[in-house]
């Protein structure tokens, strides 16, 4: 039987939520619509993260990661960090995830081959992660966080972010660019086809 609607369901919801969440700054603090949007997006985010954990097919995992990344971007929108939300979509969903899917396609020859973990591993991981989650939530709910200054970040975030990147955070910014250069060279070196060397009979296929 067809179960197509199951997969279709979150997408219109996401569309509506993104429209709803796109300008977080305009709405007042205690807005029930915003709370509904938060719970909707949070459900999508955690749901796809769980899907990531459950899925055995690596491409399905990547698609679940897309759900999580999009959900986190919407959460950024909800927290009026619009610039970060968009950067998350460009770099993560539009760049990193495509690289990951590309990597999957380059490294799995047989279609739908599944590498399953041993049951004991799953059990141990479940126990550890469950314990960690319970502990973290217990701590988080009991901690009394310092209250926010009124309003929080609002319009003009992009200019402020740019200003602080080029003043206070100039050194990390430059370091990040050096890192990116190193990564570019390193990735190009690592991924180049093996050079034919003299007397190398047992080299990798090429």
């Amino acid at each position: 039987m067809t179960r197509g609607w199951l997969y279709r369901l979150p997408l219109p919801a996401l569309l509506a939520a993104s429209a709803l969440a796109a300008d977080g700054a305009a709405a007042p603090a205690a807005d029930p619509g915003k709370a509904v949007a938060f719970y909707l997006v949070a459900a999508v985010t955690v749901g796809s993260a769980l899907g990531c954990a459950i899925a055995t097919n690596i491409v399905r995992m990547a698609m679940c990661l897309l759900g999580t990344l999009g959900g986190v971007a919407l959460l950024y929108f909800l927290m009026s960090a619009t610039f970060l939300g968009v950067i998350q979509l460009i770099v993560y969903a539009g760049g990193t995830l495509i690289v990951i899917v590309f990597g999957v396609m380059l490294t799995s020859r047989a279609y739908g081959v599944k590498l399953r973990p041993r049951p004991v591993e799953v059990l141990a991981a479940l126990v550890v992660c469950g314990a960690l989650l319970v502990g973290l939530v217990a701590v988080l709910l009991r901690t009394d966080w310092p209250a926010a200054p009124a309003g929080g970040a609002a319009e003009g975030t992009v200019a402020a972010l740019g200003g602080s990147l080029l003043s206070v955070y100039l050194v990390p910014f430059e370091l990040a660019s050096v890192l990116l250069l190193a990564v570019m060279i390193g990735a190009a070196y690592l991924a180049q086809p093996a050079l034919p060397t003299a007397g190398d009979g047992a080299g990798p296929e090429e």
Partner: peptide
């Protein structure tokens, strides 16, 4: 709390998946 849930899912994925991309 949401981030904690994400963290635990991520940890679970990292420990149980055998596919390196996973």
């Amino acid at each position: 709390v949401l981030a904690a849930a994400l963290l635990c899912c991520g940890l679970y994925v990292m420990t149980t998946k055998r596919n390196a991309v996973g």
